Amino acid sequence: MLIAYLLACLVIAIAAVVFVLRRFTRRITRRAEAAVPPDGQCLDIDGERLHYVDFGRGPAIVFVHGLCGQLRNFAYLPLATLAQTHRIVLIDRPGSGYSTRDAQRDGGLTSQANAIARLIDALALDRPLVVGHSLGGAISLALALDHPQRVGALALIAPLTQPVSDLPAPFRSLAIRNAAWRRWIARTLAVPIGMMTGRTTLAHVFGPEDAPKDFLIRGGGVLGYRPGNFEAGCADVLAAERDMPGLAARYAALTVSVDMLYGRNDRILDCRVHGETMPALSERVRLTLVDGGHMLPVTQPDATLQWLRDVIARMPTPQARQCGAAQPHMTVSTDSANDAG
């Protein structure tokens, strides 16, 4: 009798804790969405709702964020200045930010690249420059390989380019293979644990540079405290683990120019592995190394914008593309943090 009573008490206690955690998670989710509401508009494409921001006029530039991020990760760049001469399109990747992910899709690199290709078509963008950060860099590479006619050039910032056998410390908790288990964690433990470890996580992701004090709001970081974003992050990690070997084997087939900006002190993705190897794998790659970490669009926005302008200046004109003008052989440059490009 005593044992049965104790077991009943334990079950009740566990149920109460789970109830409190779920309520806490829902409350934090509402607060996060109130603090960072949708910035743009949504477009329904093949069962997915893609949230994007579209402003400016001129040749298009599409921005694709990284793991556990959203489109506000690019908010520190002087985009208003760039929008004076270019059309700026910022995308929440499927499952991230305010974009949804079709339940039948697993977050594969090809699947996400296909969604971006469909968005490019829907917005009638003429072979835009695609800017991809971190995991967004790998998806941008998949886009250029699978849909080369939709891409004018790639500008990749600290991109994931090679298979990763050991996840960076801040993302190891995302490698949950059982979908039911990660769904339960997302709705109970992920948010409170994420809040407790958030300062340490940001220090690692941004290091050796400092994370801005307003990153949770201006940079959209607070949206990571939502169950759906945690689940999408888990799926993204597993998809990258599965898909990167096949993607990396295809770089010789790239038909567009690829400029890469990497921080020498990146603590998330080693610039020697993911950056310095790339020019040898494709003659279309140009690598620029600067002193800095992983979050260059946030920590060095002016230098990043200057690098982007240099990339834009090298892009072939529409007339040259139509005539099949040859792309220049790409080389490696190692500029300082203050004069990237």
Rank of each mutant, 00 (worst) to 15 (best):
I3L: 15
A8L: 15
A8F: 08
I12D: 02
A13W: 12
A15Q: 07
A16C: 06
R22G: 09
R23N: 14
T29C: 11
E33M: 10
A35P: 00
G40D: 03
Q41N: 06
C42E: 15
L50Q: 09
Y52V: 11
G58W: 07
I61F: 07
I61C: 12
V62K: 02
V64H: 03
C68L: 09
G69P: 00
R72N: 14
A75W: 02
L77K: 08
L79G: 07
L79W: 08
T81Q: 14
I88M: 05
I91Y: 06
D92P: 04
R93H: 06
G95E: 13
Q112D: 07
I120F: 12
A122P: 08
A122I: 11
L125Q: 00
L125Y: 00
V131W: 13
H133G: 10
I139V: 13
H147E: 10
P159S: 11
V164M: 14
S165I: 05
D166M: 05
P168F: 00
P170H: 04
S173N: 13
L174K: 09
A175W: 03
R177P: 01
A179I: 04
R183D: 14
W184H: 03
I185M: 12
A186V: 08
L189C: 02
A190D: 00
I193Y: 14
P212T: 08
P212G: 06
D214F: 00
L216A: 11
L223E: 14
Y225K: 05
F230P: 04
D236V: 09
A239T: 11
P245C: 04
P245M: 03
A252N: 12
D259N: 11
D259S: 15
M260G: 05
R267S: 14
C271A: 09
R272M: 06
G275I: 08
L281N: 11
S282A: 13
E283C: 10
E283F: 07
R284G: 05
V290M: 02
G293D: 04
M295E: 11
L296T: 05
D302G: 02
T304E: 07
Q306W: 03
I312L: 14
M315Q: 14
P318E: 10
A320E: 15
A325L: 15
A326S: 14
T331Y: 03
V332W: 02
T334Y: 08
